[in-house]
């Protein structure tokens, strides 16, 4: 079970949101991922400039994929024009999604409402650093 968070180019997200979502889904499907949930956080101000962008639209995706697919996924996301930045994190225990940001429903076709499965006690860090490389550089 993986969790991906994307910052999508704001200008493109406003004008061609459906295309942007489809683009991301296509990349995921191409690599044999099964999308469980897609959630739009909406437009937010970035804490600092990322590739010249001051604002961005956040998109959260939960998906299942083979671990071997992750490096190619990560590279595809990096090459994408829509995506300013992405983070993929392994998460065995997907909780009820964030109450932080009021959630606007993503495009109806996008949401695959799969119930969250209860996972027994998990020791220590359940999130394994899939993106160790990325975070270490930080």
């Amino acid at each position: 079970m993986y969790e991906a968070l994307f910052i999508i180019d704001n200008a493109r997200a406003n004008t061609e949101w459906d295309a942007a979502i489809k683009h991301i889904q296509d990349i995921l499907h191409k690599n044999g991922a099964e999308i469980l949930k897609t959630e739009k956080w909406g437009e937010k101000k970035l804490a600092y400039k990322v590739k010249g962008h001051k604002r961005g639209t956040y998109l959260l995706v939960h998906f299942n994929a083979k671990s071997t697919a992750i490096p190619t996924l990560r590279r595809d996301f990096q090459l994408s024009d829509y995506i300013v930045r992405s983070l993929i994190v392994k998460d065995d225990k997907i909780e009820e999604l964030s109450q932080i940001v009021p959630v606007e429903g993503a495009a109806p076709a996008v949401v695959v409402g799969k119930e969250v499965v209860e996972v027994p006690e998990i020791s220590l860090l359940t999130e394994e650093v899939v993106s160790a490389k990325v975070t270490d550089n930080v």
Partner: peptide, 20 residues
């Protein structure tokens, strides 16, 4: 440890600042 990792992730995704 967990906080450290979370904050660094949040910084990477521009949710928190590196330097404010």
């Amino acid at each position: 440890h967990s906080v450290k990792l979370s904050i660094k992730r949040a910084r990477f995704m521009a949710l928190l600042p590196f330097v404010a």
